[in-house]
Design a protein around this nucleic acid. Sequence first.
DNA 1: CGATTTTGACCAGCGC
DNA 2: GCGCTGGTCAAAATCG
Length: 314
Amino acid sequence: MESSWIDTSSLALDLSVGPRWLPDEASRQPQTRSTHAQQSVSKKDEVEVGLEAKLNQMSKENKMLTEMVSVMHYNYNALCNQFFNLVGSSPSKGEAESPRRKRKSESPEMVNYGDVGSEKIDGVVSYIESNSNEDNMFKRFREDPKPKISKVYVQTEPSDSSLVVKDGYQWRKYGQKVTRDNPSPRAYYRCSFAPTCPVKKKVQRSAEDRSILVATYEGEHNHGHLSRGAGSVQSGPQPCLVSIGPSCPTITLDLTQQGSQPDLGRFCREMESPEFQRLLVEQMATSLTKDPNFTTALADAISGKMSQHPPAQN
DNA sequence: CGATTTTGACCAGCGC
DNA sequence: GCGCTGGTCAAAATCG
């Protein structure tokens, strides 16, 4: 996941959380027409004030959630690094490379899908799987220390046949192969920003869904994030866009704020609490049920079902 | 002209 | 040992 914080453009934060203001709700507001002009003006003011308050509240919530996710990302990376240091304690990755062309097995054990995230890259949605499950990581490092591997699934235009995953890093392609289990070719890339950077990635279209690109990252960058802001090297939290799906409300998080470091410990404790988990689920459910598209689609589906199977007449 | 991509060849691991 | 396969190399081609 570390290499996958990409999109820079958006500062938008649409969590669809909390009470949602629906346009047609406005028209359903009390229709009673006051003949008194001043009364209607003051009502209008009240509505505006109320709306502003709601907006403020929502933006506060959004800000808080943004910080939480940012902290979660920080914490995750910190934990990973700690774990690497504690358990791995092996010579620097990449430096101690095994003899060249040593085949690496892609055993299921290596890629653990316990930690799944998602993000939006240049208009496409990607889902990230990384090998962060602690048990398996521990087992893996005890048995055979290997470079960190993560997978990124990138939804692309079906017409787009290129094997390019824009992740903000600079890659140099060094090979392409057609593999046995997949008719589409696999492209091999190496990080070309730093000659010593050991990170490699493989990009191949999914055999099941040709519109999905599967990028497999191996290793960790030993330099900052680049290719943003006129090629300047950047580090720290990268912007993150999370999209649950086309029909679901989007959660757009901006992690570009690099100013103050929030209280990591406090936020992490909060996020681990069952209360936070419960709230998260509640907010997801709320955002779904408040989404007019969702409710409309649900109503359509139900009415469709009912018309297919009309209730038994008595 | 330097950087990047393409592509055929080569090499090593693995299963039989 | 042999063949298959994935991963990498490196020369040529292409691009900006």
